[in-house]
């Protein structure tokens, strides 16, 4: 009965999300469309980090670094080399993948807490480098980044950029969905459950983890490229440690490993502070309280993944199932 109620709620939510996502650019004000576009950016970032944290179980505390590398790659190539937006995407993918390999290769062999420390440091290094180098524009960053074009049509209006973001999100969403069900996705799940048993099945954990780390980096790079042309100006203040934590919050709030969870949580993380603008003085304080209340009410996340649900239930019913197992074996003896 509870499950049925849940299914209705979920179905209604999916319909609501699709209606809002398509209706917003048609009926929304430019301000609302901009808020919606920011939600799309956080969905991309959340989906990317979800590959690293939710699928592969690695803690990354400097994820904004890859977001920055994507944004600066696109910004610099368009500003200085006058490259078209679309040509900057593969370059950004290469740069983010390369930095993922450079950071991941030495650290993924170590215990996971080292990865958290190294990624934290990497996030700060990238931000500080962007602040101090001249070709990144220093603290002021880059501005006047050109608008992307599609066959001579310039994507300038909030609506056009919103739809570009939506297209990015759909690609990343499809990629995430398929990854979870791929051979690699099963390997990640196996490693999370029991690394030795995974190895005994022929999985090389370091390699699988590196793949997750690099794929996550590329997703963030794509989000960064889009972010750069959406805002037409970027500076280091968008790529702080707090940004990394905010993205991490999206997947924790949504429910680890859950794609619908990321979408809902990205909306909450972006929209809640906007709603609270009326209470300017206490806005971020109220935001924090709101998130804490949400986590207390739904510790499993807004929309937990199948695996996450099983994990929680497994703890609750381990004793009951042990008894059931004995009963089932007893039944087998009478077969």
């Amino acid at each position: 009965m509870n499950a049925l109620g849940n299914r209705w709620v979920r179905g209604a939510l999916v319909v609501a999300v699709i209606v809002v996502a398509l209706g917003l650019p048609i009926v929304g004000t430019p301000y609302l469309i901009d808020v919606g576009t920011l939600v799309l950016v956080y969905i991309m970032l959340g989906l990317g980090l979800n590959v690293v944290v939710g699928y592969a179980g690695l803690l990354d505390l400097g994820y904004a670094a890859f977001f920055a590398i994507g944004a600066y790659t696109t910004g610099i190539l368009m500003d200085d080399a006058h490259l078209a937006f679309w040509w900057t995407l593969p370059v950004a993918a290469c740069f983010t993948a390369l930095s993922g390999v450079v950071i991941g290769t030495p650290t993924l062999r170590l215990r996971s807490d080292y990865l958290a420390i190294v990624t934290l440091g990497f996030g700060e290094i990238v931000r500080i480098a962007a602040t101090n180098l001249t070709f990144t524009g220093g603290p002021e960053g880059l501005y006047g980044i050109a608008h992307p074009t599609i066959g001579g049509f310039v994507l300038r209006s909030p609506q056009a950029l919103y739809f570009l973001g939506l297209a990015f999100v759909l690609v990343v969403l499809a990629g995430s969905y398929n990854l979870a069900r791929s051979r690699l996705g099963r390997a990640w799940l196996a490693i999370r459950e029991d690394e030795a048993a995974a190895q005994a099945a022929g999985i090389y954990p370091v390699h699988s983890k590196l793949m997750a780390y690099v794929l996550g980096a590329v997703f963030a790079g794509a989000a960064g490229s889009f972010f750069a042309v959406k805002l037409t100006a970027i500076n280091p203040s968008s790529f702080t440690f707090i940004q990394s934590v905010t993205i991490l919050m999206v997947i924790i709030l949504g429910g680890m490993g859950s794609l619908p969870g990321v979408i809902l949580a990205a909306a909450v993380i972006v929209v809640l502070p906007e709603v609270l603008r009326a209470f300017d003085q206490v806005r971020m304080f109220a935001f924090g309280i709101g998130l804490i209340i949400l986590m207390l009410v739904r510790p499993q996340g807004l929309w937990p993944s199948r695996i996450g649900q099983i994990e929680r239930r497994a703890v609750a019913v381990s004793e009951a199932s042990a008894a059931a197992g004995v009963a089932a074996d007893a039944a087998a003896t009478t077969e």
């Binding site: 051979r183 390997a187 799940l189 459950e193 099945a201 999985i203 497994a314």
Partner: peptide, 19 residues
């Protein structure tokens, strides 16, 4: 601990053929 308890029987078997 023999199996991947969070996966289905089918997924476990597919994982066996990972190589």
């Amino acid at each position: 601990r023999w199996i991947f308890s969070l996966m289905t029987v089918d997924e476990n078997l597919r994982l066996g053929a990972y190589a």
